[in-house]
């Protein structure tokens, strides 16, 4: 049984989650808001990975699990695969999506350069629009982390916006 979810509903919901956490519940604490949004994503990823791995043989190593995230998991979520996967073979993986669906409809004031690393707090302060976009990426980061941790891989996930709507997710596996 395949259940479909309206894409615009999910997008609106995500926008609303970000809005209510960032300017409602935790207006003065952006780190806390980010953590809460990430936690929601974590639970979603945790539960989805349970469902999407049902018909697969067990993964033998981390790379196989990451490949699963890039291919099948991403296809289920976004109807496309990750465009590029890079790894340093020491536990860091970079997943690049050239047209990330949840950023596809996001517009940014063109006068402001839309680049910035959401991991870097100083860059965040400088660049408000990148910060606002970055807030929307905590949820997918949480999804990836939740899915991997359910598969037995403890990791940290961060996101990078290079050039909308492209974005990359950096997975660091904890040794």
């Amino acid at each position: 049984m395949v259940r479909e979810v309206s894409e615009s509903c999910v997008e609106s919901l995500l926008a609303e989650i970000v809005l209510s956490y960032c300017s409602g519940f935790y207006a003065n604490k952006p780190e806390l808001a980010a953590r809460r949004i990430e936690a929601i994503g974590f639970q979603v990823g945790h539960q989805l990975s349970e469902r999407y791995t049902m018909d697969r043989p067990r993964f033998t190593d981390n790379l196989e699990a990451i490949k699963f995230i890039c291919k099948d998991f991403w296809s289920e979520l976004f109807k496309k695969q990750i465009d590029n996967l890079k790894t340093n073979h020491r536990g860091t993986f970079v997943l690049q999506d050239n047209k990330f669906r949840w950023l596809a409809h996001m517009s940014i004031d063109p006068s402001v350069q839309a680049s910035g690393n959401i991991q870097d707090p100083s860059a965040m302060a400088e660049n408000k629009s990148a910060q606002a976009t970055g807030m929307h990426l905590y949820f997918p980061c949480g999804i990836i982390r939740g899915a991997l941790s359910n598969l037995g891989i403890a990791c940290a996930v961060s996101a990078d916006i290079s050039n909308l709507p492209a974005c990359s997710f950096v997975i660091r596996i904890k040794a």
Binding site: S49, T53, M54, R56, P57, R58, F59, T60, N150, L151
Partner: peptide
């Protein structure tokens, strides 16, 4: 051949019972 299959088969038979196992991807 089915090295990583979820179904683990018969785990061990006792006199009156048989135990079967299954291991999901999420352990």
């Amino acid at each position: 051949p089915t090295i990583n299959e979820a179904f683990l088969g018969l785990l061990y038979p006792t006199e009156n019972y048989k135990a079967y196992g299954y291991l999901t991807n999420t352990k």
